[in-house]
């Protein structure tokens, strides 16, 4: 579902953010991406989101070779990947409902279908009763859950999250991770960047560890030992 093949990303200032990076995430897999800040986690996710293009190698997401995606095709590829940002990136002047509905409006769905799906997504993240609120009226954890609902509302095959629990306390982080696991159980492929090693290790999922732009460790899934 996500395939990196000898990917290099060198910025114009000469800094090499990713070097010779290769890995493959199969459909339905869930993996964490770790490494200290500056290791290249964000750059890797930005390549998947087509915010950046790789300098060498090949990135493929949901069957698209991203090197061959033209500027005009970018939106259609992005619709197949749900993105979750550390800073949520919600529209402050729109209601929770409108925020979550955005990908569906963009995809051109009808009113009734949008209403049905948005409520289903909000139900999944436990915010059904807050659809008329504005994001600023919500707590950080709730805002993040709105962001998650928006990322999954159009049922993309791939969901990518950049430090989704970065600003949350351990209890909320655990809830968010539970949520991700539930999506994974229904077949969504997930790649979650996080530096919260303790949280990651407890989950027992596959872990990709980056260091200065190189993949230094690829830990396979462990048998879970949930408390």
């Amino acid at each position: 579902m996500i395939h990196f093949q000898q990917v290099c990303k060198r910025f114009e200032n000469g800094h090499e953010a990713l070097s010779d990076l290769s890995f493959r995430l199969e459909s339905g897999e869930m993996a964490f991406l770790t490494g200290h800040s500056g290791a290249g986690k964000s750059t890797l996710l930005r390549l998947i989101a087509l915010i950046e293009r790789c300098s060498r190698g090949m990135v493929s997401v949901a069957g698209h070779n991203l090197n061959r995606v033209s500027r005009r095709q970018i939106p259609y590829v992005r619709r197949q990947v749900g993105f979750i940002f550390q800073d949520h990136r919600l529209l402050a002047d729109r209601t929770v409902f409108d925020n979550v509905a955005l990908p569906l409006v963009i995809a051109g769905l009808g009113h009734r279908e949008i209403g049905r799906r948005v409520r289903a997504a909000l139900d999944k993240v436990g915010l059904l009763d807050k659809e008329r609120r504005c994001p600023v009226m919500l707590s950080g954890g709730e805002q993040q859950r709105v962001g998650i609902a928006r990322a999954v509302v159009n049922r993309p095959p791939v969901v990518v999250a950049d430090e989704p629990t970065g600003n949350l306390d351990p209890e909320l982080s655990r809830e968010i991770m539970d949520l991700f696991e539930r999506f994974n159980q229904v077949g969504v492929t997930l790649l979650i960047a996080s530096h919260d090693l303790e949280l990651i290790s407890r989950r027992g999922h596959r872990v990709l560890c980056l260091d200065r732009g190189r993949l230094v460790r690829d830990t396979p899934p462990q048998t879970r030992d949930r408390q």
């Binding site: 989101a49 915010i51 005009r72 939106p75 259609y76 590829v77 992005r78 619709r79 993105f83 990136r89 919600l90 529209l91 955005l102 990908p103 963009i106 995809a107 928006r150």
Partner: peptide
Amino acid sequence: REEIIIAKLVGATDGF
């Protein structure tokens, strides 16, 4: 601007 960028991130075409 912020709204436009967010819309682009979730797959909005230029036309949209």
